Computed example of a mutant assay.
Amino acid sequence: MERIVPNLTVPDLAAAVAEHTAVLGLRPVMDHRWIVTLADADGHQLSLMTTDATATVNPDVSIFLVSLAEVEAAHDAATAAGLAVVHPLSREEWGVTRFFYRDSAGRVVNVGTHT
């Protein structure tokens, strides 16, 4: 595993970024206009998002794996476990390959890697 990042869905992205940077001292390290990832100098991250660009649901957490092979294996494992894949294994235009599954508590988990 490379990193785990919580994703907060927010109605006003600019306001949320301003709040979290002011309170926590985080700074934007990625901004796609629908999702902004904030980080500190040690690499701790928090993502804020309005509506996912290609998925019908927003993930609650993103788990980034080291390789495409690991993402494909996780996809196979989620399917074998009978979990609902709520966003198919997809290569996104911003350089990430990912899929989402819904866990037994109803949380949506984004599993991906940079490709």
Results as ranks from 00 to 15, higher is better:
Asp31Val: 14
Thr54Gln: 09
Leu83Asn: 12
Ala16Tyr: 11
Thr9Cys: 12
Met49Asn: 01
Gly112Pro: 09
Ser104Gly: 14
Thr115Ala: 15
Asp103Arg: 02
Val57Gln: 04
His20Ser: 01
Leu68Lys: 00
Ala77His: 06
His44Tyr: 06
Phe100Glu: 14
His20Ile: 01
Arg98Cys: 11
Thr37Leu: 03
Leu38Tyr: 08
Val108Thr: 11
Thr51Gln: 01
Thr97Gly: 09
Pro6Tyr: 09
Thr50Gly: 03
Leu8Pro: 05
Trp34Cys: 10
Glu19Trp: 02
Gly106Ala: 13
Phe100Asn: 14
Pro11Asn: 10
Val36His: 12
Val86Glu: 12
Thr21Asn: 08
Glu92Val: 11
Arg91Phe: 13
Ala18Val: 03
Asp40Gly: 15
His20Pro: 02
Ser62Asn: 05
Pro28Gln: 12
Ala39Gly: 10
Val108Arg: 09
His44Leu: 02
Val57His: 05
Thr79Gln: 13
Asn7Asp: 14
Arg27Tyr: 07
Gly112Asn: 13
Ala105Leu: 10
Thr54His: 08
Leu24Arg: 12
Val36Phe: 07
Ala18Gln: 05
Ala15Trp: 13
Leu26Cys: 10
Leu8Arg: 08
Ala84Asn: 12
His87Pro: 04
Asp60Ser: 06
Ser67Cys: 00
Val23Glu: 11
His44Asn: 06
Glu19Arg: 04
His20Tyr: 05
Val109Asn: 06
Ala81His: 12
Pro28Arg: 11
Val36Ala: 09
Val29Arg: 09
Thr115Cys: 15
Val23Ala: 15
Val66Gly: 01
Glu92Gln: 13
Leu83Glu: 11
Ser90His: 15
Ala69Asp: 00
Gly25Gln: 04
Gly106Thr: 13
Ser67Asn: 00
Val96Asp: 10
Ala78Phe: 07
Ser47Pro: 10
Ala105Glu: 12
Ala73Trp: 01
Asp103Glu: 05
Gly82Asn: 15
Ile4Trp: 02
Ser90Asn: 14
Ser62Arg: 03
His44Thr: 02
Asp52Met: 01
Pro88Tyr: 14
Val5Gly: 12
His114Gln: 10
Ser90Trp: 12
Leu83Cys: 12
Thr9Arg: 15
Pro6Phe: 13
His114Lys: 11
Ala77Trp: 06
Trp34Pro: 06
Val36Pro: 04
Ala77Leu: 03
Ile35Tyr: 10
Phe64His: 13
Gly95Thr: 11
Leu89Asn: 15
His114Tyr: 08
Pro88His: 14
Pro28Phe: 07
Ala77Val: 03
Val36Asp: 10
His32Arg: 10
Ala78His: 06
Thr115Glu: 15
Thr54Trp: 14
Val17Cys: 12
Gly112Ile: 08
Asp52Pro: 01
Glu72Cys: 05
Ser47Leu: 03
Ala53Ser: 04
Val96Ile: 13
Gly43Met: 01
Arg107Phe: 14
Val57Arg: 02
Met30Gly: 09
Val66Glu: 07
His44Gly: 05
Val23Cys: 13
Asp31Gly: 15
Ser67Thr: 00
Glu92Trp: 09
Tyr101Thr: 08
Val111Met: 04
Thr115Tyr: 14
Asn7Phe: 11
